[in-house]
């Protein structure tokens, strides 16, 4: 993936999309092949270095958004900075940055002090995006973030996501099983193709 590139990873349920994402993020070890993130080979790195790389370079958006329900919106947005000193250093005013992200994502600033469990699904989704974007990581990894949305909302959400990712010049790797989204991405990778090509190689 090039910097700022938007890649869609398509595949059926159970095809290994989430496992591939976990490998890219360095939480599942690679048994064969190579994974390079920001120019570094994950297989050559220690567990601590992979965790640090993930904290510093990758923003994750989960399928179910996965906010910490007991924390405030602000706590959730700032959470990645706790494990990423360099990313933290880029954010001079954490609260102000979180507020700006909320505004850009169409959330009222007052939501920052609200408990995450009390948000609507749409609000949770935007907070999850804000959490991935804080401190401008190089790659945003999104695991089927639109699966729970209807078509209109899906389009609006992607607009918002693309807009924000473009501003930070981050690469976007999004996983989906919805082929209709393909037009909106720079590149589309079909996981079934990879499986087939792997079979052929064997």
């Amino acid at each position: 993936m090039a910097a700022g590139e938007r890649v869609l990873l398509l595949g059926q349920s159970g095809s290994g999309k989430s496992t591939l994402l976990a490998m890219l993020c360095g939480t599942v070890p690679v048994q064969s092949g190579q994974v390079h993130v920001a120019g570094q080979d994950l297989a050559q790195m220690s567990g601590a270095a992979r965790d640090r790389l993930r904290a510093e370079q990758i923003g994750v958006i989960f399928q179910q958004f996965n906010l910490l329900p007991f924390g405030s919106v602000l706590d959730n947005i700032l959470l990645p900075l706790s494990f990423a000193p360099a990313r933290r250093a880029k954010v001079k005013d954490p609260r102000g940055t979180a507020a700006a992200l909320c505004e850009a994502l169409g959330l009222p600033v007052a939501i920052l002090s609200k408990q995450a469990a009390k948000l609507s699904v749409g609000q949770q989704q935007r907070v999850a995006v804000a959490r991935a974007l804080i401190g401008a990581p190089q790659v945003i990894v999104a695991d089927e973030p639109t699966s729970a949305l209807d078509a209109d909302t899906q389009a609006a959400f992607l607009d918002l996501l693309f807009d924000q990712v473009a501003q930070t010049k981050a690469g976007l790797l999004m996983v989906s099983h919805d082929a209709r989204l393909a037009d909106r991405f720079d590149r589309v990778v079909h996981l079934s193709d990879i499986a087939v090509s792997t079979q052929e190689a064997l």
């Binding site: 993020c25 939480t27 567990g47 601590a48 965790d51 640090r52 993930r54 904290a55 510093e56 994750v60 989960f62 996965n66 906010l67 910490l68 959470l79 990645p80 706790s82 494990f83 990423a84 959490r131």
Partner: peptide, 16 residues
């Protein structure tokens, strides 16, 4: 486990 997985995804080390 959800809470732990979120922390791990954010870059938390297992010892955290």
């Amino acid at each position: 486990r959800r809470e732990m997985a979120i922390l791990r995804a954010m870059g938390a080390r297992p010892w955290v």
